[in-house]
């Protein structure tokens, strides 16, 4: 149980989503509905495997369950009692655009170069990706299935994850012709770049590093460690077209070969 509730989420904010999964699971277990239980059991397995590597492990892991505090102090309905399937009503795209602007402005301070700035944007995306993965895992609980192959996971990102946050699937998923360890997720109109005019002194900057971070978090979280970078490849039809290059860790390739 502890493995689920505390999984790969850092100790500070937005633990709510994980914790509500825990609440959801506890209540289901209590009712002892057998069929339900097996669903949750498979989820437990899926999620406990989601111990993420690299950056996630550098986050502080909280091994404390948040249950005790709610026992000690009488509290009104908490976020754990809320239904995670309820989707909040939409907001304005501008709300995201302005928030993102400030993230970019803040990331620009004290950075030495384009690379460092992209890393910072990617870190924000990583934080989002971790939580979106969990949320999707809980919501898709009925069809919970652990992706064991690279292609399946990439398709999951390409469709389910992308839809969950950007409201549409990504536009394409391709495998590199030359490199065995490289895949490409393509978005013709990434939300982060909608209003961007890249200045001439930073021609290689791609703010879609934010989404690259999202992908990386999902890959890591599902035990497919990879490095994901964003590359702008404008076409006449899609001037914002961006390729997210997924470069798999050698270990993943090795496992793929073994499973084949």
């Amino acid at each position: 149980m502890r493995g689920v509730g505390t999984g790969h989420v850092d100790s500070s904010l937005h633990r709510g989503v994980t914790a509500s999964a825990q609440a959801l699971i506890s209540s289901a277990v209590d009712t002892s509905s057998l069929s339900c239980y097996s669903d949750f059991a498979s989820l437990l397995i899926t999620m406990s495997k989601m111990q993420s590597s690299s950056r996630a492990s550098s986050d502080k892991l909280s091994l404390r369950s948040s249950a005790p505090s709610s026992v000690l102090a009488p509290r009104r309905a908490t976020i754990y009692d809320r239904n995670v399937n309820r989707r909040a009503p939409d907001l304005a795209l501008s709300a995201f655009a302005f928030l993102f602007s400030e993230m970019v402005q803040y990331s620009q301070k004290n950075v030495k170069g384009v690379q460092e700035m992209e890393n910072k944007l990617s870190a924000y995306g990583y934080h989002v990706g971790q939580r979106v993965l969990e949320l999707s895992a809980i919501r898709e609980i009925k069809n919970a299935k652990r992706e064991t192959r690279v292609l399946g996971l990439l398709q999951f990102i390409n469709t389910t994850i992308w839809k969950a946050i950007f409201g549409k699937p990504a536009d394409a998923l391709e495998k590199s012709k030359d490199q065995e360890d490289e895949y490409m997720i393509i978005d013709n109109d990434p939300i982060s770049n909608k209003y961007i005019s890249v200045p001439k002194d930073m021609p290689s900057l791609d703010c879609a590093s934010f989404q690259a971070g999202v992908i990386e978090a999902v890959m890591d979280g599902c035990q497919f460690p990879a490095r994901v970078t964003a590359h702008s490849v404008p076409t006449d039809l899609h001037p914002l077209k961006t390729v997210f290059l997924v470069k798999l860790d050698p270990l993943v390739l090795e496992r793929e070969r073994y499973m084949r």
Partner: peptide, 25 residues
């Protein structure tokens, strides 16, 4: 509004015209 105000790479204000004279605008 679309290309200067919402452009994350333009600063919020534009001393010396910074960020206004971008390609999209």
């Amino acid at each position: 509004v679309e290309y200067v105000v919402k452009n994350p790479l333009s600063p919020p204000e534009h001393p010396g015209g910074e960020g206004v004279n971008n390609e999209l605008f």
